[in-house]
Design a protein around this nucleic acid. Structure first.
Lengths: 220, 220
DNA sequence: CCAGCACCGGGAAATTTTCACGACGGTGCA
DNA sequence: TGCACCGTCGTGAAAATTTCCCGGTGCTGG
């Protein structure tokens, strides 16, 4: 953090949203937005050339998404400070982001003060989670706790991903080099472990937990 | 439109985004933001009390969504001018919005100039569609054109909705007062007409077409 | 060494999906 | 009026699938 104030890199694919960040942040003395990126790849490139004190990052972006961008940036600079600012209000994304190396997670429904506060906290070395997500997290701890990836074995999780992406059991069996029968068994096991009765519920669960993102839908 | 400039109502559940709108619009002489709303119900209430010249509306919001808000406002004031400004880049939402009474549809990835241009166009009585959606629309015209609701009979569409919302065949049969067998037949017919092989593809298609919105997922 | 677990698949029963068929009411048209 | 067509609803039987239970492998930690 230089004497002239903390430098910030803004990452969001919506230009109007970046405009909003700017407007909110520039009211705050000691903060300086020095660069903007519209996708993960650009964010990574700009981080390396600008090395800002803080990155404010959206999650859902075309091409390389936010989670992957966080991972790459952190790989390049282990001390990078990244604050996630996104529309997704479910705990699944927050967990993923933090695990990937984010130092904060704030939802876009939060008032501007919350964002500013989180920026300050992260710059001060603290972890910042917005209240609504904190609450969500607490809830998921208490109830059920069938938090997707934990209860599934690696193989099962892989099948789940393919199930959501590709389509037929045969195709998955082929790409995995196992018999279709095994895939069917895994599929059944997955639904059992996740406590869902139908494939439709399965997709909805995956969507909620962030295993399948809405943006992935375009390719089909 | 008063002599002091066009009055605008901003509707978006993300405060930082509203900040962005403001920042972009206030650079434009002749535009004046007079009110802001964070959900559909508030938007409707504010429209009635303020009667702005233009509404800039997001689609995905908690409670009453954008589409429904457009419908209500247009019902109250047939000449209401509403410009949709949303993250959803698929043609399905655009069609729904326009059908509900919107006069324009611009995606959030568009540069600020496009938004400003659309605002001006709608205020001038024109219909404004951002280029990317125009393109999407054209594409869906050319290829397939299995645009969901058109190919399905009312009954089939109803079953599809219930399938995506509730879960078991039996429950749907019960709420519809028909035999489970009929529901299964409809279910099969739907997948046939829509050209999908599995329920998973079905959900993905519904998601793309906006029949099922991501926000609906929270209730489950 | 053994218990536990992930992983792979077979077999058979249960269930679901699909397909072919018939019936009924409404609508449009000659 | 008669008739063809479509949407809806249901049946029944074949086909496919899901599910459940089983045995076998290999790995890991106590």
């Amino acid at each position: 953090m230089s004497a002239a104030g903390a430098t910030i890199l803004l990452v969001d694919d919506h230009s109007v949203v970046r405009e909003g960040y700017r407007s909110v942040l520039q009211k705050q003395p000691g903060l300086r937005v020095i660069a903007e990126a519209a996708d993960g790849a650009e964010a990574y490139r700009l981080y390396k050339s600008e090395t800002p004190d803080l990155v404010i990052m959206d999650l859902s972006m075309p091409g390389i998404g936010g989670i992957e961008a966080i991972r790459r940036i952190r790989q390049w600079d282990k001390s990078a400070r990244i604050l996630v600012f996104t529309m997704h209000e479910n705990a699944g994304f927050a967990v993923q982001a933090i695990r990937a190396g984010a130092r904060g997670y704030v939802t876009k429904t939060s008032p501007p003060e919350t964002l500013v506060r989180a920026v300050m906290d992260v710059l001060a070395g603290k972890i910042a989670i917005s209240p609504d997500i904190d609450h969500e997290l607490a809830l998921s701890r208490i109830s059920g706790e069938n938090s997707a990836a934990d209860v599934l074995t690696p193989r099962e999780f892989e099948v789940l991903r393919l199930l959501l992406a590709e389509n037929t059991t045969e195709e998955i069996a082929e790409t995995l080099h196992v018999s279709p029968k095994t895939v069917a068994n895994l599929h059944s096991m997955i639904k059992d472990k996740l406590g869902v009765g139908s494939d439709i519920e399965l997709v909805r669960l995956a969507l909620r937990q962030g295993i399948l993102t809405e943006v992935d839908l375009g390719e089909a």
